[in-house]
């Protein structure tokens, strides 16, 4: 099972850990950051929704390879993915996060929270304004978005501090996905059996690698749930600002899930 979890994870990762590590100091230039910040809020939301959807497609492929997942009824496969896909992406983000300068790998380079500033307010283009620094707070159209981005970065930073191996990240992702306490499951007992097997295998791995202290240091599951709720709240707030945009502009899978 341990081999299956690791193999499934590595086969469905867009980037190898070594590659992400090797490139961890390749950051966006200030001009490139400004170009991101000058985008309109809608453009940046569509861009991030696109990247997030790609990551979620990889989570679906990961799930399909996990032992026992495809034996569940399809209703439950959908329930688990709908509830867990974003959480898995957020856990996996620690592999693509440089905790030393608080940047994340996004569209080919590493960038900090400032890269995503346009998500929370309109870009600077066409407004005759200069740098974003010192922008008045009345222009912060989605102020909660900055909190969401900071919270996601904080979460990645706290996971990075645990220095998880690929096997450990793979198990954390598998356990986020195969969670028998998700509401609306039809065959909860079947999911609970798979979850139980995963927990035993994870504990055995941690014992073998003398990393048993990891379990006590993991962030509480409520923190991931809170991030997902924050994302939904911001998406709804964005939708209220751009009522006509959502159906056409976002990837179909993103619309289905959120």
């Amino acid at each position: 099972l341990t081999q299956n979890v690791l193999k499934s994870y590595l086969e469905t990762c867009a980037q190898r850990t070594e590659e992400l590590q090797r490139r961890r100091w390749e950051t966006f230039s200030s001009q490139e950051v400004c170009a991101y910040q000058r985008q309109s809020m809608a453009e940046m939301w569509q861009r991030c929704a696109g990247r997030l959807t790609e990551a979620i497609q990889q989570v679906v492929e990961f799930a399909k390879r996990l032992q026992g997942f495809m034996d569940l009824c399809q209703h439950d496969q959908i329930v688990l993915l709908k509830a867990g896909a974003l959480e898995v992406v957020l856990v996996g983000m620690c592999r693509a996060f440089n905790a030393d300068n608080r940047t994340v790998f996004f569209e080919g380079k590493y960038g900090g929270t400032e890269l995503f500033r346009a998500l929370g307010r309109a870009g600077d283009s066409g407004r005759g304004r200069g740098q974003a620094e010192g922008t008045a707070s009345d222009e912060e159209l989605l102020p909660g978005c900055h909190d969401l981005i900071s919270s996601i970065f904080d979460f990645a930073q706290s996971l990075c501090a645990l220095h998880c191996s690929d096997s450990e990240v793979a198990f954390l992702c598998a356990l986020v996905l195969l969670n028998a306490s998700r509401p609306w499951l039809q065959e909860q007992a079947k999911v609970a059996v798979l979850q139980g097997h995963l927990e035993v295998a994870f504990r055995l791995l941690l014992r073998r690698t003398q990393r048993e202290e990891l379990l006590a240091r993991l962030p509480p599951a409520g923190r991931l749930r809170a991030l997902c709720s924050q994302h939904l709240e911001q998406l709804q707030a964005f939708h209220r600002l751009h009522p006509g945009l959502l159906p056409a502009a976002f990837p179909p899978l993103y619309r289905e899930l959120f």
Binding site: Q57, V60, E61, K64, R65, M70, Q74, H75, Q77, I78, V79, L81, K82, W184, P252, L253, E256, L257
Partner: peptide, 17 residues
């Protein structure tokens, strides 16, 4: 649920890896 999640349904159907 499958009706409401056609893309997810399709992704899950495509090649049982």
């Amino acid at each position: 649920l499958q009706e409401k999640h056609r893309i997810l349904h399709k992704l899950l159907q495509n090649g049982n890896s």
